[in-house]
């Protein structure tokens, strides 16, 4: 659970971890039904056939301000916590 929380970037209390661990065990137990089916089919990543469609890489002007919903900005930039 500690490892999953670290990967999932969630800070949970010990009580929450215990509770989620129990629920996750129940869900994973139910998923075991899939062990009983022999599925060699190609994985269906989409339910219908999807064509690759690539558009021209053109410059387009947008009417909106990309920073319009950000609270922490510096001139033309988002500001955020230190990464390195």
């Amino acid at each position: 659970m500690e490892h999953i929380c670290m990967l999932a970037k969630l800070n949970l209390t010990e009580q929450e971890k215990e509770s989620y661990a129990r629920e996750l065990s129940d869900v994973l137990e139910a998923f075991k039904v899939l062990d009983s089916i022999d599925a060699k089919d190609e994985p269906a990543f989409h339910p219908i056939e999807i064509k690759d469609r690539l558009r021209e890489d053109e410059v387009r002007r947008t009417k909106w301000n990309p920073l319009g919903n950000a609270k922490s900005v510096d001139k033309k930039y988002f500001t955020g916590p230190k990464i390195v």
Binding site: F31, L34, I37, A39, K40, D41, E42, P43, A44, F45, P47
Partner: peptide
């Protein structure tokens, strides 16, 4: 074991 298996089962369900 999980994600790809589920996608294979989906292919069967579509058929």
């Amino acid at each position: 074991a999980y994600y790809l298996k589920a996608l294979r089962v989906r292919a069967k369900i579509i058929k």
